[in-house]
């Protein structure tokens, strides 16, 4: 049962990732990326990481991708090009590099022995918000506080960059 759910989520993720990359309409790109993130949230939940599954849906699909949608609507971007419609050399070299980048980890994965590397789905005692919150506020307190600093800097920078120049 569990491997079947994983395989379904994986196939959905890959198919909609291809649509994300290949479709010419920006809105459909964003919406299919939402589907990819939901499939990944399903995988996280399957592996017992409830907190990550919730964060994936709330923060990624709910906040970041909606930001993308708002910018697309704000700028009124229409479909302009399709995958690989650019220069021949760019398409060829890009494909070669991407396949090479993907082939290296796949070869490394095939060298791993599956017997030692089984993932336990289902109950995971560290997957909920209590142990994660405790770790964030004790052992990883500095990184946690630094992330808040980074987010504030990003917000101020975004407002500064996107504002209209005063005349």
């Amino acid at each position: 049962m569990v491997p079947i759910v994983f395989v379904i989520a994986a196939v959905v993720a890959v198919v909609f990732a291809i649509i994300t990359v290949a479709h010419s309409s920006p809105v459909i790109n964003v919406l299919s990326l939402v589907v990819v993130f939901f499939a990944m949230a399903a995988i996280f939940a399957l592996l017992g990481m409830d907190f990550l599954a919730a964060v994936q849906i709330i923060v990624y699909s709910g906040a970041i991708l909606v930001l993308f949608l708002f910018v697309i609507m704000l700028l009124n971007i229409r479909s302009v090009e399709r995958l690989g419609s650019g220069r021949r050399v760019q398409a060829l070299l890009g494909t070669v590099v991407a396949v090479g980048v993907g082939a290296v980890p796949l070869i490394a994965i095939s060298l791993l022995t599956p017997a030692t590397g089984a993932v336990y789905p289902g109950a995971l005692e560290t997957g909920t918000v209590v142990p994660i919150g405790r770790a964030l506020l004790t052992t990883h307190l500095f990184a946690f506080e630094f992330i808040t600093l980074l987010l504030v800097a990003a917000i101020v920078g975004a407002v500064y960059l996107a504002r209209r120049e005063p005349r």
């Binding site: 569990v2 890959v14 990359v21 995988i43 993907g102 796949l106 599956p114 590397g117």
Partner: peptide, 23 residues
């Protein structure tokens, strides 16, 4: 679930993303 499956999915998604960035 063999963790190689999860890693293979990760590699596949990374390849698709790289293709998008480059093309």
């Amino acid at each position: 679930i063999p963790h190689t499956w999860v890693l293979a999915l990760s590699a596949a998604l990374f390849t698709i993303g790289t293709l998008g960035v480059l093309l």
